[in-house]
Design a protein around this nucleic acid. Structure first.
Lengths: 221, 221
DNA sequence: ACCTGAACACCGTTCAAGT
DNA sequence: ACCTGAACACCGTTCAAGT
């Protein structure tokens, strides 16, 4: 009919999962993660809070979506010199992103659901480490160590805890390993997942590195 | 009078801040941090939720108290061989505690209020690093690096952000430096607080350490 | 198919009232 | 001084009803 409300002539873009995630990220950037509520999010999108449930199953799904979008934005370096430069450049890119999205480490530290994009990111790091000639076992420990350094969380600490081996099996039982070549390679290599050993490995690596840095500094001064 | 209720003969211990904190820790251990609500906490202590407000100002104060109690429980090593062993042993103690209190890194990552006990802990680490002969600047970076490794959070990431220098000044303006000798020493040494530089320092230390570990492994096999 | 209003069972917190 | 009941302004989520 001709008497349609004028609003209908400039229809707002249809609500999609991605638009919900992006709106949530914008709110969290400006006002913090606590400000991301269903009602506030609806307001930001010009819709009632309840409408959101047609696109996402729950608020947790929105938080997972935010984490996923964040990880997807960590650019791969274009022409890294070698494996160390590759990891270094991407870590710096991640850090630059974290400065804009301070809530990201918080969300990534306790994922409700395993994010495929997060797995791809970790698979990429693992790939560079293997390329650098690290053994499967060492590459595995190194991946955790770099992850904690880069994104500000320690997966093994916030992890599922007691039976890490079983948890890892469950995770990799539910995904398609063909999409994650580096994970596939180290699983075939038969890494064992000992959290205490990994922790000590990372700690000693840091302490020994500090001692060397001290000596290097003493030599140049 | 003789007609007192029988309950009065076995009076429950008086409610104190510490008892509130410990009850909160017990709930978080068993059911997770989300289960710690004022009503649930009151129930655990045999009291109405509202009574808690006579002992703590707010729920945030309870969360801070939990973090504080946690840090206080990280034992100092008795007879460490040297500075590296000292830091290593205490880090392992912290890690063992984290396994029991999985919520701790989460709380320590975003403290609402600076915990004196956390400062004492960091001051102790800093003291061992200076004892080990690290320069003020390097010891400062190292403290952050070890903190992130040990407790599973990256202070500089979750930190106040843009003007770290001003934030640091504000923190150390409000406390008594006499209680924190190592902090006092590095402040006198004139460290500058550049978060990007610190991040790169830690990252390169880890990457170089991995390269060395790879070469060491290759040599022994 | 998509959106909504009213409602439910929870939060943290305030405040006047009880002992 | 210490505890309480009722209430307020918020949450996430459900569900029957609208278009």
């Amino acid at each position: 009919l001709a008497t349609r409300s004028p609003k209908r002539h400039t229809p707002r873009p249809a609500l999609t999962r991605e638009r919900v995630f992006r709106a949530a990220m914008a709110i969290a950037d400006k006002e913090g993660l606590d400000a991301v509520t269903m009602r506030r999010l609806g307001q930001e999108l010009g819709v009632e809070a309840m409408s959101l449930y047609h696109h996402v199953r729950s608020k947790d799904e929105i938080l997972d979506g935010m984490a996923d979008e964040f990880v997807a934005a960590i650019d791969e370096p274009a022409h890294p010199r070698d494996w160390k430069a590759a990891i270094r450049e991407r870590a710096m890119a991640a850090r630059a992103l974290v400065r804009r999205h301070k809530w990201a480490p918080h969300l990534l530290a306790s994922p409700r659901k395993l994010s495929p994009r997060m797995l791809h990111y970790e698979d990429w790091v693992l790939g560079r480490l293997l390329e650098g000639g690290l053994s499967c076992q060492m590459a595995h420990s190194a991946m955790h160590l770099i992850g904690s350094r880069t994104l500000g969380f320690t997966q093994e600490l916030s992890g599922v805890g007691d039976d890490a081996e079983a948890a890892a099996r469950k995770i990799f039982g539910s995904i398609d390993l063909a999409e994650y070549p580096a994970f596939k390679a180290i699983l075939r290599g038969g890494v064992h997942h000992d959290e205490d050993l990994e922790f000590a490995f990372g700690l000693d690596l840091v302490l020994d590195g500090l001692e060397r840095a001290r000596d290097a500094e003493a030599r140049t001064t």
